[in-house]
Amino acid sequence: MSREWIKGPLPVLVVLPILSVLTYATTDMPFFIYLASITGVNVILAVSLNIVNGITGQFSIGHAGFMAVGAYAAGYFSRALAGVQLVFLPEVVSDQVIFLVAVVFGGMLAALFGFLVGLPSLRLRGDYLAIVTLGFGEIIRVFLQNTEALGRALGLRGIPQRSSLLAVWMAAFLTILVARRIVSSSHGRSLLAIREDEVAAEAMGVDTTGYKVRAFVVSSFFAGVAGALFAHFVPIINPSSFTFVKSMEIVVMIVAGGLGSTTGAVLTAIILTLLPEQLRTVLTSGAEGTDLAQRVDQLRMPIYGATLVALMLLRPQGLFGTRELWDLWPRSQPKASDP
């Protein structure tokens, strides 16, 4: 009891130094950092979408829209404050504080949009959410494409590149932690109940609309955070990065990982992000300096697609089904039938 309070922050206290060391050790590996950042962003997106699609059993297909909101909001914010420094703080620290605020701001704005989009559509059962989120994603994109201040189709440039491995992966870790803690709380049980049977959940006193909206808002928040981080390491953000295709990529990640499985989402997000990059290495190896090296790179995407098809044929329920990584070890089967 007395030392219980440590349980809450403990994972963060453990991971923070590890990530810091990692970040420090890899400062002169720009490609690793870039790849890790993209991967981290995809992990955040997949895990957060899994809260809605996997755990709550709703079907959102406009996650890229919320990511766009976060990216543009944070990007715009950071760019506007690029020449500003906080008193009493050295420049680097001040930049990071502003960056943090920008990320939170991006997340909050995305969460607000999540609330506005989710409230009307989640009150109804069925596929309304899919339709509304699809529409939302497109509206956001068209809006961005036509807004002068946000750079139209060309995109928003000149966002200070303040992201780091630490920032991205800390955010990814927090997202995972939040998702896991939600699932294992009473709150998460209510979400799972909604997924299993909405009518029954409602009859057992679960405020289904309220819970669905909250889950959706949390999910949107993290999508916004992912977008905000994205905006701080990609030199230009552009509406074409947040299309329906992007939304579907995230859906594919969580379906392939097993709807409802957080670790599945993390794992597939990592694999599916790195796979094309890995293929690049494999495909160009041994073709040094020949014409072949110039020809094979476009094979990556078909191979990537084929891999997905194969996965879904072999494991239609996704990598882990609804279970988590640790459920796969036999030890955690306390069941059998004890007489």
Binding site: E4, W5, G8, P9, L177, H187, S190, G205, V206, G210
Partner: peptide, 19 residues
């Protein structure tokens, strides 16, 4: 009606009361 509402924050922070 909302007495099943669980404080998100306490669940996320694993506060002793929540546990």
């Amino acid at each position: 009606a909302s007495n099943n509402y669980y404080d998100w924050w306490r669940a996320l922070l694993l506060s002793p009361g929540y546990l």
